[in-house]
Amino acid sequence: MSSPVATPAVPVILTHLQRLESESIHIIREVVAEAEKPVMLYSVGKDSAVMLHLARKAFFPSPPPFPLMHVDTTWKFKAMYALRDQMARESGMELLVYQNPEAKAKGINPFDHGSLHTDLWKTEGLKQALDLHKFDVAFGGARRDEEKSRAKERIFSFRSASHRWDGKSQRPELWNLYNARKAKGESIRVFPISNWTELDIWQYIHLENIPIVPLYMAAERPTVERDGLILMVDDERFRLNPGEQPVMRSIRFRTLGCYPLTGAVESTADTLPRVIQEMLLTTTSERQGRAIDHDQSASMEKKKQEGYF
């Protein structure tokens, strides 16, 4: 073809963050174009913050044409609930909060029930919420660099009508062509930030000024130390052992979940660049702060098969 071609005088080299952003936006738009009733699972963490930001970019000037859903355990940090409500207002999106009524009725909590807590509130709660609203595609903020078993996860992950992940029936993903077709009752989890690393997430939050929960930054907070984890006493429901006294420590969190299950790190990094600096200089991988992964080495895999994100 010999037609004239308008080439930029100097080729524009896109940065890795621009490429990742474009890829994620492309994925989010494909889902909305092909799904019947999509929803974005919003956990209020830093990955969710980036995912929501990308969704807003994808449909600007429209608000994203799907709701946000928070599968709540009632045990998140207070600061998370505050940011959640603020972001729903700012984005103009509908916020659905789901709390598993069974877990609520039985008073399931992280102090008495251990892994049952995560199982009922999160895993079961998520399935119930998806069934209740008949969502066929749910966006999640998982990344491939988080853990070995995630490295091979597809961007579009298929779930049977009972929400189980079946490693044998996952589809090959070629180029940027995603196959979103499914039978009635089946659903898809889509991970638009699969190819982002922890550093990418932090850099992007920094560059784009994305609001995040202040708990990611260091401050003096009331804490107790148990089994090698520093826990924050976020409200009066925290059960102190006999003789245990909350101690003020300068701490921050690398990941956020239910406050009695989420370990903090001692730190003085009170700005985002300092948090990134600390992250780059520290030498332990991200999920160490989460009690859930310590159970067994293949625990993520197992959780995934059961329908946990």
Binding site: H16, R144, D145, K152, Q170, T197
Partner: peptide
């Protein structure tokens, strides 16, 4: 019996 078609790794 899990099909692993491709695993993705990251470095910089």
């Amino acid at each position: 019996g899990i099909t692993i078609d491709v695993a993705y790794r990251f470095f910089a």
